[in-house]
Design a protein around this nucleic acid. Structure first.
Lengths: 343, 343
DNA sequence: CTGAAAGCGCTTACAG
DNA sequence: CTGAAAGCGCTTACAG
């Protein structure tokens, strides 16, 4: 605020040309004499001129910015997603306007509305199952939008998601395949789409391939502390299950800590598996069996797709994709010679 | 792009008033007759009008947005910092424009310049020691700016930092106090300010209170993998040190994994300590002794201060603060009865 | 190749 | 309390 910044007019005056010419020179248009361009650029640099983004986007109808609206700025999932999005953004010279709504629907609406005039397109992550209409009601109609992990199948909005159901199915089958018969499942937040899909996959696998195997369901909310509590409650029960499948890695780590603390050996006394393959999963002891999800890849695809939609002026191509997680078997789920060695 | 969005004009026409009145009604100015205001609001809602941010900020000279420029969108540090910043932003109705430059100075300059006209103020995280001039040269002169963890003492820019040196000093003293004499230090990236300060604290503590204790310095770059490598190299050496002090928790966890894998007991055979107190630090086995840093608190303070500077139109108050980390002793550094129990 | 002018969608003195 | 008008700082047809 203090000193008022310098504008295109100052550059024009100093260079003895019109503002139109300054604009053209600085934007690399071809209809500017080379010596003039050089002069303008030199003057602009000398004056430390940088264009006013709001003015520029008001007249050019382009902001060079993509809005990202998500529930949280927290944790591994967000971090990885942003990595994917950011990489594509940077490669295309796009800025990122990030808005988190903390699971508050009202806030989400506000954030969505506020995007108009700030961004050229929107990436929305809305993993809540309640009120899909609210979401569509608040999406700015004129803004290209791509949905990530959002339980909404509106043909107007392409969606990119993880196939949580298939992933949980695959993991449960793995645990059954290696011989576990009593399997506990630590669930995620009840309203969370991923959590529900993973739970559904667990149940379906047990029903389809369980052949009488029994499932034990425990509550959780995706953080380490709830995994720890689930682990403690299993330790307090009459008998440990053969295996524990946590709906995400953070809870698996919390649970592992409870077991370690109690002197229970994983996987000899109880097998353990997670979901997500966060970087740390391979750096705990024993290394964690999990479903690997390329979250960064998800962000990358969604962002690339969005930029395409923006460039094609609304001519949508695909209607989105589902990314299949892959099973990564490490020491925590299988009693192998190597897992005995360290003892 | 598709359909063109509706503007204040549409609302004015539909409500039979001037655009000035619409603007006033929607912005809660008091000089609007109550019935008129109600009508305008009703029409705006019906038309799903939301104001064009670029136009609004161009004329009002306010963007309601704060820019955050940092090297990376990755990891626990970023995540915690953003949590602090985001909380304050939300409480003040501010948006966040986030730009990462991946350690590339050129990119940082571009990001900084691009902030003009997009934000009302800037939060800059630049933990690199090289070329402080480049930074000041590229900061938009008219924009209130607050520095976080940035080795630059320019009175124009208030700075908020962690006292890494004091923290590392305290941790090293702790390790000495409990009797360790050969202490390995796993360092961070050479150009990183925090990394250098922590190393300096380690050396100073050894010199001042070591009383002949020996320090062994190993390279690292703040991620788990480098901690793991450092752990392996210690295992391969003639004799393990008494203790390992990793410059951050992630490396400590990597190192812990290497020890676990080799069947080395922590802390009985070697003590281990980190720095940062990431959430996971208490959920590994054994729980990690570390320096607790309120990164979220750091972000919160910096953001609050920035908003103050913005509101006071450049009348800077304090020139920043240094946040002191606190020692958190857990099982990994001290052989206690409880740490023997689980075996 | 260059400039004068209109216009992007708002806000805000200025009159009334 | 309300409206007409100027202006925010750019970009972009339109002439020349």
């Amino acid at each position: 605020m203090a000193k008022t910044a310098i504008t295109i007019k100052d550059v024009a005056r100093e260079a003895n040309v019109s503002v139109a010419t300054v604009s053209r020179a600085l934007n690399g248009r071809h209809n500017v004499a080379e010596p003039v361009r050089r002069l303008v650029i030199e003057v602009a640099r000398r004056l430390r001129y940088s264009p006013h983004a709001a003015a520029r986007s008001l007249s050019s109808r382009r902001t060079q910015t993509v809005g990202v609206v998500l529930p949280d700025l927290h944790g591994e999932f967000f971090s990885e997603l942003m990595r994917g999005i950011d990489g594509v953004a940077r490669a295309h010279g796009q800025h990122l306007l990030i808005s988190s709504y903390h699971g508050d629907q009202e806030q989400q609406g506000v954030a969505l509305q506020a995007m108009r005039g700030r961004v050229d397109g929107l990436l929305v992550l809305s993993p809540y199952t309640a009120n899909p209409d609210f979401l569509t009601d608040n999406l700015p109609p004129a803004l290209p939008t791509v949905l990530i992990n959002t339980p909404l199948s509106d043909p107007r909005y392409p969606g990119f998601s993880i196939d949580d159901h298939a992933g949980a199915l695959a993991m449960t089958r793995h645990l059954l395949d290696v011989g576990h018969r009593r399997i506990a499942f630590i669930g995620g937040p009840g309203q969370n789409y991923d959590a529900r899909e993973r739970l559904r996959g667990f149940r379906d696998a047990l029903a389809a391939y369980g052949n009488g195997a029994v499932g034990i369901e425990l509550p959780g909310d995706f953080d380490e502390a709830s995994g720890y509590r689930a682990g403690r409650s299993l330790l307090a029960s009459a008998a440990l299950p053969d295996a524990v499948f946590a709906a995400n890695d953070m809870m698996a780590l919390g649970c592992l800590y409870a077991f370690n603390q109690a002197g229970i050996h994983v996987p000899r006394q109880v097998a353990l598996a997670g979901f997500d393959d966060i970087p740390l999963a391979r750096f705990v002891h024993p290394a964690l069996t999990t479903m690997q999800v390329s979250i960064a890849g998800l962000g990358k695809r969604a962002m690339s797709h969005l930029l395409q939609v923006i460039d094609s002026e609304g001519v949508t191509g695909t209607s989105g994709q589902t990314v299949m997680p892959t099973l990564v078997v490490r020491d925590s789920s299988v009693v192998s010679p190597s897992s005995m060695a360290g003892r």
